[in-house]
Amino acid sequence: MKLEDFELGGTHLKSSDFKQGKVLTTEWEPNLKYAWDNGVAIGRYLAELKAGRIIARICHKCDRIMLPPRMFCELCFRPTDEWMYVKDTGVINTFSIAKVNWDASRRGPKEPPLLPAVIEIDGASEGMGIMHMLGEVNPKDLKIGMKVKAVWKKPEDRTGSITDILYFKPVTAKRKTKTKAAPKAGGKR
């Protein structure tokens, strides 16, 4: 068989076909809203964000300090063991300079680009990154490997959300900071 020997289906419509009413349509806007339970791990993660801290969860068997925190370890498939605070600093693993909004609409000429990034958080296991935004930086100066620090909302404005961190901004390397062991949260809340 050859594709060329068949008359293929699929009738292409142009935007003008819709505008000029050459094709009939019907519309539907789903009016569905969801309330996703946060669960134990993410519930605590959000509560700690509200308090201005980032908390991780440890699996002793795999020796991993995990972000976002999770109540079971997906590698060894057993419950994770304890909570641990990590720092609010980290390293840019990768970044983008986005001129497109979530729905593929373009950002206006006066709107600055969005700067999404994967940030490896200090204190978590190597490679444990979260997606967040970058700010207070000229996009041209961005580099993979750059040290960054969280810029938080004012305590009274925080709601217990990942957006309680406004963005991460580059930290100017004045001196090498010694890595202190992050404080342990200890036990149950």
């Binding site: 986005a98 909004n101 997606m131």
Partner: peptide, 17 residues
């Protein structure tokens, strides 16, 4: 839905990253 959607990501982000 909780840890990423509030940042309003688009699919292109993850590929760009």
């Amino acid at each position: 839905h909780t840890t990423e959607q509030p940042l309003m990501p688009t699919l292109i982000w993850i590929f760009a990253l």
